[in-house]
Amino acid sequence: MEAFFASLVSVAFHGTALGMILYVISVGLSVTMGLMGFANLAHGVFAMAGGYVLTTAISRFGAPFPLALVLAFAFVAAASVVLERLLYSRLYTASDLEQVLFTIGLIFIAVAVARFIYGTLQQPVVLPDYLKGQFALLGRDFPAYRVFIIVFSAVMVGLLWFGVERTRWGAMVRATVDNRAMAQSVGIDTKRLFTLTFALGSGLAGLGGGLGAEIIAIQPSYPFENLVYFLVVVSVGGLGSLRGPFVAALLIGIADTACKYWLPQYGAFPIYVATIAILLWRPAGLAGRHA
């Protein structure tokens, strides 16, 4: 019984860590899809880029871990602004098919560039000593790094939610998700809003990719392999919503960990089946407004 309880705690803990990472990566996708109606399949590219920035900053340049996290965010956010202005913005009114193809094209390019620079091997993450050990809580030991992931992500999520609920920028985002034409007619500069929001969402993905580099391995096929997970979080959670994807990410993180622990013979099968079931039950996701 005690053994079962221990594994239950462990699964919940590791699942929460994975869920947090998934959320930090995917929340930007939810917002940009809700805000701009853009089917950005290349979102995982930003997360991967964040992972590469972090590992390179640490192993090549000896940057301290916190600085590397900041760099992952800043670098990816800055790069995404360039991409948004140069390419994405031209396709806001394009059809779903065109957006899908364009972003698949970006994935192919990113995979090739990553392979060219870093080769196909997984990037090792060098953790600072203070994140390597165990963290004792209620008589149990938890890996310090994962505790850090959960706490740090929770703070980020808190900041983000506060920003969206309480700031002028957040109010504009919410208004524009609700009704773009209305928002434009009351004088919201949607073009700038899109760029800013896109940069923030991509930056968060970069941060999540860097933060979770040890959980979701950084290697060139990252954007392909994890795409389904990011999309599951967003579509199960509900487009344009902040909280729906949070619930979805935690559910998926925990369910995935539980499946790998208790039902390894089924792989990710139960997750996909559950996703299909949820989407049939609520096609617009858990927090979707059209369900």
Binding site: A39, D96, V100, V234, S235, L279, L280, A284
Partner: peptide, 8 residues
């Protein structure tokens, strides 16, 4: 379903 849900 439609659009993104269908794609997903």
């Amino acid at each position: 379903t439609k659009a993104l849900t269908l794609l997903m």
